[in-house]
Design a protein around this nucleic acid. Structure first.
Lengths: 211, 211
DNA sequence: GTCTATAGGCGGATAGAC
DNA sequence: GTCTATCCGCCTATAGAC
């Protein structure tokens, strides 16, 4: 395998250009989706010629796959990650509230994440493997992290921690989708704190009957 | 306004052709999304010439808007609707279970609904008004219906019925998105009944402390 | 109102100079 | 490896016959 200027052996072509193309591709694909993005505009955004793009990636589909794969595995992989060890020492109510708040801060922390999710959802028919990669790296991360907490936290005696984790993540992600992605804020107004408080209460308040 | 063969005065051109074009457009747009759909293929699917398509709709965007608007307002508007009056007499546990099951039956009842939702989500950046129409006609329908039940059902003494309804709908819709739209069944297996039972239990089992 | 035929442009992808 | 220039097909949209 060829060696490049930057000394990295894991790519056979100039890493700088590859990075520029991926960055330009991210800008264009996340803004317009797969079909509405042209390789001309990717090249312009990357400040290289179109031929250079095709020197680094076999075709449009390859570039898209490589780009989304990288976003799924690196840039956004920890976006729904659990809280720090420090926070985990607090009472469950606080831990879960913090977890939910972190997840919903995504809009401000990673401004491109909403577009990223839009593309994943929109292209999940044409690119099922990218959708699965999203589930494995992002949905599953959030889910497993919560699930572990639900299982090991002594105060919470949940009958089904796994299913409860799904409910939790579902409520949060769906809230994000309706309010932000689908522009539903003005139609179905709901303060974030109110949703989180209700969701957390449903889980931490002990039921009277335990079969 | 001109009168057509079918006697309907609400359209100035042949209703039969209009219907055919909308049907063909639905097939193509729901399968491939906005950008990847060509007017040629819409014309072929509708079994008319491309010029006829342009006689009935100003351009591609107009056709797409008209089509989605109709799907949102008619074909899919009641898809997350509440249960019958008969079911509402049953105990809350049964009512909520039935509601959740109906929503998740969508996949089999309206096979195109998943594609429809994919397109709405995928195009919510380029067509924000269609996304809002989806929220108003579909998300809000499910939400209001549940909300009314939560508010008026005497057994359930929920602190915040509105927020609870959001949690409920969110858990169901997100389950649908991950398992079906994102092909997550094999990665994060979870039986539908298990999720529903857990979700319903979180809501109907009375908390010990009521502030 | 509906068709066939076509204009005009932009798309993905490549040839060949350097 | 990167560029400029170009191929060629498919795209949206329209002209004009009937």
């Amino acid at each position: 395998m060829k060696q490049t200027k930057t000394g990295r052996a894991d790519r056979s072509l100039s890493s700088e250009k590859t990075e520029a193309i991926l960055k330009g591709g991210m800008q264009e694909f996340l803004a317009h989706g797969y079909a509405a993005t042209s390789m001309d505009r990717v090249a312009i955004a990357a400040k290289v010629s179109k031929a250079t793009v095709y020197n680094h990636f076999q075709d449009k589909e390859s570039l898209f796959n490589a780009l989304i794969q990288r976003l799924v595995e690196h840039k956004f992989s920890t976006i729904f990650d659990g809280a720090d060890a420090q926070i985990l020492q607090m009472p469950p109510q606080a831990v879960l509230t913090e977890f939910a708040n972190r997840a919903l801060d995504v809009g401000t922390q990673e401004p491109q994440f909403l577009n990223f999710m839009r593309v994943i959802l929109g292209e999940s028919g044409r690119f099922p493997e990218l959708a699965r990669a999203f589930v494995r790296n992002i949905e599953q991360t959030a889910f497993k992290s919560l699930c572990q907490y639900f299982t090991h936290c002594p105060q919470l005696n949940l009958a089904d921690p796994e299913a409860t984790a799904r409910v939790f993540v579902g409520a949060i992600v769906h809230f994000l989708i309706v309010q932000e992605m689908l522009h539903g804020k003005d139609i179905l107004p709901m303060e974030r704190d109110r949703l989180i408080a209700t969701l957390v209460n449903l889980i931490v308040v002990k039921p009277t009957e335990q079969p």
